[in-house]
Amino acid sequence: MPHQLIASPFLEQHLLVRPGHEDGLLLPEANYEELRAHHPAQPAPAWMVGAVRDQWGLDVSGRLIGDYLLIRQPSTWGYSRASWEINLGCNYACKHCYLGLKVYSGMPLDDKLACLRIMAEAGVLWLQITGGEPTVDKDFMPSYRAAFELGMMLTISTNASLLWREDLLEMFERFPPYRVTVSMYGATRDSYDELTQRKGAWDLFIRGMDAARAAGLPLRMSVIVTDDNAAEEQAMVELCERWGVEYNIFTNMTPTIYGGAESLTAQSKDHLRMRKQFTGCNAGHTFFHTDPHGLVSICKIGRDDQINLPAEGIGGLARLGEIADRLMLRTGGCSGCTLSGSCTVCRPLAKHYQEAKAPLGSYCQHGMKKAG
Rank of each mutant, 00 (worst) to 15 (best):
T226L: 10
G57F: 02
K112T: 14
K269S: 14
D139W: 04
Y192I: 01
V225K: 11
H352W: 01
G123K: 02
D227W: 03
C299I: 09
G336D: 06
A30C: 07
Q42P: 00
P134R: 04
L154F: 02
I307F: 13
S157Y: 07
D270L: 13
I156D: 01
A231L: 12
A283E: 02
V182W: 06
V225P: 00
M107V: 04
I314E: 14
S335T: 14
L309Q: 13
S183V: 08
G341M: 10
V52L: 08
Q365K: 11
L204F: 07
F278H: 14
L15K: 02
L113C: 12
D227M: 03
F250A: 09
P74L: 06
E233S: 00
G208I: 00
A122H: 04
L329E: 15
A318E: 12
A51G: 06
L320V: 13
E233Q: 14
C334Y: 08
W202N: 05
A120P: 03
S83T: 06
A358V: 00
M253D: 07
A46N: 03
A201Q: 04
A37V: 01
K369D: 14
A215T: 08
L264A: 05
C364E: 01
R330G: 03
R81G: 07
G50M: 09
I307D: 14
R63K: 13
C364Y: 03
R36Q: 12
T76C: 10
R174I: 02
T130F: 01
M236P: 10
T196Y: 03
L35G: 10
M221T: 07
D193P: 06
I65Y: 03
I86F: 09
A41N: 15
L101T: 11
V182C: 11
H38I: 02
Y92H: 11
P134A: 08
M209G: 09
D167W: 06
Q277L: 14
I314A: 04
S143D: 00
L26S: 07
Y144V: 04
A7L: 13
L113F: 06
G372M: 13
V296T: 13
L309W: 09
D228Y: 14
C299M: 05
M171H: 02
L99Y: 02
A147T: 06
G284H: 04
A261R: 15
I6S: 11
E238R: 10
